[in-house]
């Protein structure tokens, strides 16, 4: 089993938390994990990405080679295209369709979506809307939507959420659990 995943979005949108949860779940079922992320200057409201590699075999590089990613999981439609060079030919793009506009020259959304439509395997949906309904963060909704593509039992992801958010209290755990379930059931 091998899954190479690019997680991407905009600094501060919680994409690193998603990476941590998948990593935790993978490690607990005995898979090897490497997950690389960006801190510091590159974080402040700019594009951010994380490379997550899961495999039953030993993993060497911390970063995924170009054209080899099985999944691009993005919290923002334009950001999902920024790393499209990493996607394998039969890979999947799973992205939030709600744009995050913090730059003056953000392109017309129609044009972004048109480019996304050209990607053979893609899922685009409004994760912000679902997040609003369940009163949770959209990053967890996205994780839920990606769950069927990860080859990791859903219950393991739920356990990982317990592990990681447990110390923040039951309310936080439940809100995140509601979000990943809503994401899984979306579409």
């Amino acid at each position: 089993m091998k899954k190479d995943i690019i997680l991407c979005g905009v600094g501060g949108d919680g994409i690193v938390s998603v990476a941590k949860i998948i990593s935790d779940a993978a490690l607990s079922v005995g898979l090897n994990v490497k997950q690389s992320e960006i801190h510091g200057m590159s974080q402040r409201g700019g594009s951010v990405f994380s490379h997550l590699r899961i495999s039953s075999e030993p993993i060497f590089a911390d970063v995924i080679p170009e054209g080899k990613a099985d999944i691009i999981l993005s919290s923002e439609p334009m950001e999902s295209l920024r790393y499209i060079n990493f996607l394998a030919k039969d890979g999947w793009v799973i992205t939030n369709s709600a744009p995050f506009i913090n730059i003056k020259n953000y392109p017309e959304l129609d044009k972004v979506m048109a480019e996304l439509d050209k990607v053979k395997n893609h899922v685009a949906f409004d994760a912000n809307e679902i997040a609003k309904q369940v009163k949770a963060r959209s990053n967890m909704v996205l994780l839920g939507a990606a769950a069927p593509y990860l080859d990791i039992e859903f219950a393991e992801l739920e356990k990982a959420i317990q592990n990681i958010f447990g110390r923040k209290g039951e309310e936080v755990v439940n809100s995140n659990l509601a979000a990943i379930r809503a994401g899984r059931d979306a579409k």
Partner: peptide, 12 residues
């Protein structure tokens, strides 16, 4: 090489 990054992608 991987797929080309579409021109519509703007620097953030």
């Amino acid at each position: 090489a991987g797929a080309a990054i579409p021109e519509v992608v703007t620097n953030r």
